[in-house]
Design a protein around this nucleic acid. Structure first.
Lengths: 333, 333
DNA sequence: CTGAAAGCGCTAACAT
DNA sequence: ATGTTAGCGCTTTCAG
């Protein structure tokens, strides 16, 4: 059943059927009713592909994350889907697995699929990124990154500020010997900003930076365990607090500390960033920073929608808020 | 730049260009080289939408899960994407949020988008499911469910057997007073099969079923806490082991037990199904069942691919293996 | 307000 | 082996 059939059934032309579907106000009430009746009876829906061939719109949005299935990205995805589905768009989701080449691959696939817009969470921004993204010619929203040279709106997380808040909190609890566990393995900008916050507050409080207190790896549980071990193996003067840049690092670190019979928070405080569902239940419950990830998905969707509706829409940057949630893993010295 | 342009540039017809792209063996070497050279120089790629309009193939697979971002489903998704991307298919991912109406909604969207196949993980199979799925007329693979009345291949998890293995393990450790925490809130078949395994082994060992030992809710952490409370509030004769049907239930239960100053596993054993990443790190580390979820995604992809390539392919059911991982949360009585 | 006709960019049947 | 032609199912001028 196609539009021609409906037209014949209604005794009108294809054009009229098309108008009834897309611009009913252009059709006289009489014909409109007649056609709508048949539309209802037959349950006809237009062939989207044929329409797309003409309109050059696919109602598809491509979304690229460094990883699918991580708490953080899942929440963002939920936000994106809620908002975009509501507006009649469907999502093509891709996982780059922290691999820059994969990022380019999917960008390319999306371009070929003629998606109407792309929401992209890069691990980093290289020169090639700038080139590729600017040649895309598709409405683009960047998450977690911003670059004036790229024609894109951005949704940004205040990692630097959040990190400073963590540090200020720790210092208000009289901690001075504070270690930092990072994850700059993937030269992620998020990792960078979190670390800068740590260094900044140390500086503001005239606390010397101690190299042995600073470690890195990836952002997973095992890495947390290893990094904790690294700190304790290399120091005589143990830290009184560890700022782990992700919750999963915190879990790993706590595991190590337990094995060493160190009590959290009595012997050492742990504080992190993420607030996963399990973080509240974990023992000790994690003191951590919660970003409004779901909302960041909504915001990214709003930005892409605006760019789709108006090709010349100015680029805009939206900052996502956070708050520190105090639980059991941190204490006063 | 379209196919006509390439044809002009090469001094051949559109048809020849199309052949070079899709069936190069049909074109003489001379012309083929000529066209391929221009293809390379211009970087031309065919308009997929125009192609789809003719071939009725979109190279799109729709995937519907009850939830996106749950460990289990993420692993399956990874498997699906790995396999299907490799074969040139892209994925349209949808989350039904355990809502049957949402399931139908997405099934419908996928149908309209002309996906080449659907991989669907239903929460349950109702009469309407049977009707809707059979009217779909799209290659279909069901995950976690099987129904002879539905024209679909299935990827099945041996939940009944896994559940029995859990129970046999517990009994081999001399446990007799075993409680069960379920999640039949969504009338999920998985939940049903796990519970049946529990009841079956009780029966085989002539252990009376004690209603107070059996609770239900959803499958989350909070539910685990509440269900544990429910058991302990309603019993004088406390169980020596709890079989929680998901890891997240186990986390919640353990939280409750800790608050009650009960030691796991000394005072009570906990054993579950899922094996999330955190389960190994959690304290106590969870004794649990691991299914090969990633592989189930690969299998589902294989099945859908077969159905796409051959419309009359017979329906097939694949069973996914599992194994019990013994850790700290369970012990001998 | 309505219809005829062109055309989106491609593939496939047919003819040569 | 190659070209010609006719659609795929829709939207969108352009006439009337």
């Amino acid at each position: 059943m196609n539009m021609k059939d409906i037209a014949n059934l209604a005794g009108v032309s294809k054009a009229t059927v098309s108008r009834v579907i897309n611009n009913p106000e252009l059709v006289s009430e009489k014909l409109r009713n007649k056609v709508q009746k048949i539309l209802k009876e037959t349950g006809y829906t237009p062939n989207l592909i044929a329409r797309e061939l003409v309109t050059k719109k696919t109602k598809l949005i491509g979304v690229i994350f460094p990883k699918v299935g991580i708490d953080t990205f899942s929440k963002i995805t939920e936000g994106i889907m809620d908002k975009l589905n509501e507006e009649g768009y469907d999502i093509l989701l891709a996982s780059s697995r922290d691999d820059i080449e994969e990022e380019f691959k999917y960008l390319n696939i999306f371009k070929k699929k003629y998606v109407d817009g792309i929401i992209f969470f890069p691990t980093a921004i290289t020169k090639k990124h700038i080139e590729v993204l600017n040649n895309l010619n598709i409405p683009l929203v960047l998450m977690g990154q911003m670059n004036k040279e790229i024609n894109a709106s951005s949704v940004l997380f205040k990692d630097f500020e959040a990190s400073k808040e963590v540090m200020n909190y720790l210092i208000s609890k009289n901690h001075k010997k504070i270690a930092y566990m990072g994850f700059n393995k993937y030269k992620s900008i998020i990792a960078k900003k979190r670390k800068e916050g740590y260094l900044q507050i140390l500086k503001e409080n005239n606390i010397d930076i101690k190299e042995n207190y600073i470690t890195k790896g990836d952002f997973g549980i095992k890495s947390g365990y290893n990094q904790a071990k690294e700190i304790f193996d290399s120091c005589d003067d143990f830290p009184t607090a560890i700022f782990t840049s992700t919750d999963r690092l915190a879990f790993g670190a706590i595991k190590y500390l337990k094995e060493r019979s160190l009590n959290v928070p009595k012997d050492i405080s742990i504080i992190s960033i993420d607030d996963m569902e399990i973080s509240e239940i974990f023992s000790p419950a994690l003191t951590t920073i919660r970003f409004d990830y779901y909302n960041s998905g909504i915001n990214a969707s709003d930005l892409i929608l605006k760019k789709i509706k108006n090709k010349n829409e100015e680029n805009k940057d939206i900052f996502i808020g956070y708050n520190l949630i105090e639980r059991e893993s941190s204490g006063k010295l």
